[in-house]
Simulated scan of single mutants.
Amino acid sequence: MSLETRMGWIDPSNSLSLVRQCALAGVSRATWYSHQSLKPASGDDLQVCHLIDQAYTQRPFYGSRRMVRCLKDRGLTVNRKRVQRLMASMGLAGMAPGPNTSRKHPQNRIYPYLLRGLQVVRPNQVWSTDITYVRLARGFAYLVAIIDWYSRKVLSWRISNSMDSAFCVDCLEDALATHGKPEIFNSDQGSQFTSTTFTDILKREE
């Protein structure tokens, strides 16, 4: 599937965050920003953006000060004001380390990846889901969303104060009841999505 096609799925006005949309589409944020009206003015800035994006993907709790040190460790000396400007243009801000929302269960089945080389050409061909967290004053809330890869529409979402599979199951049931069923359901295969409670619902729809 071409980069331009996957870039077209990303919509800043969508209720799903831009960071999560980029992750689901398999497009780096720096690549997306480089195609927008807010793209860096120079090739040098674009190179720095790519390095910032790589570092931020690995360590999203890095602010500009630690990002400067990280870039220096990678052989690039950039002043902090420039890093602050580029991070702001990319919509990036350091955050406290959050919980791992993609933890796999060792006893759950691992399913094959079916999207490599696939052309997504119609609604309900591919749905995708993921969990992210929302930082609160006294902990975290967890958000699960299901999107249609073709229409880029958020089909269903739920928020929970725990990482059990119940809110993911509820989200799936709602999406199926409202929008029909997908041909392919894609996830990061975290334990919530490979649990028998969740997969039995998908098997029921086959």
Rank of each mutant, 00 (worst) to 15 (best):
M1Y: 00
R6N: 14
W9E: 06
W9L: 10
N14L: 08
S17A: 13
S17W: 05
L18W: 02
C22D: 05
A23Q: 13
A23N: 09
S28A: 06
S28N: 01
H35W: 09
L38S: 11
L38I: 13
K39D: 03
P40L: 09
A41T: 12
G43K: 10
L46T: 14
Q47F: 10
C49L: 03
H50P: 03
I52Q: 01
Y56P: 03
Y56R: 00
T57I: 04
Y62L: 15
R65K: 15
R66G: 00
R66M: 12
K72V: 09
D73F: 02
R74N: 12
T77V: 14
V78H: 00
V78I: 15
R82H: 12
V83G: 06
Q84W: 01
L92Y: 09
G94W: 03
M95Q: 15
G98K: 06
T101K: 10
T101G: 06
S102V: 11
P106G: 00
Q107H: 12
N108F: 10
N108C: 09
R109N: 03
Y113R: 07
L114P: 06
L114S: 09
Q119Y: 00
Q119N: 11
R122D: 13
R122L: 07
W127D: 04
I131V: 15
Y133T: 06
Y133G: 04
V144W: 00
A145D: 04
I146W: 01
I147T: 12
D148N: 07
W157S: 13
I159V: 15
N161G: 12
N161P: 01
D164E: 13
A166W: 02
F167Y: 14
F167M: 08
C168W: 00
V169P: 01
V169G: 03
D170F: 02
C171D: 06
T178M: 10
H179A: 06
E183K: 07
I184W: 02
N186L: 14
N186Q: 09
Q192H: 13
Q192W: 05
F193I: 03
T196Q: 13
T197I: 11
T199I: 07
D200T: 13
D200A: 15
D200R: 15
K203M: 10
R204E: 12
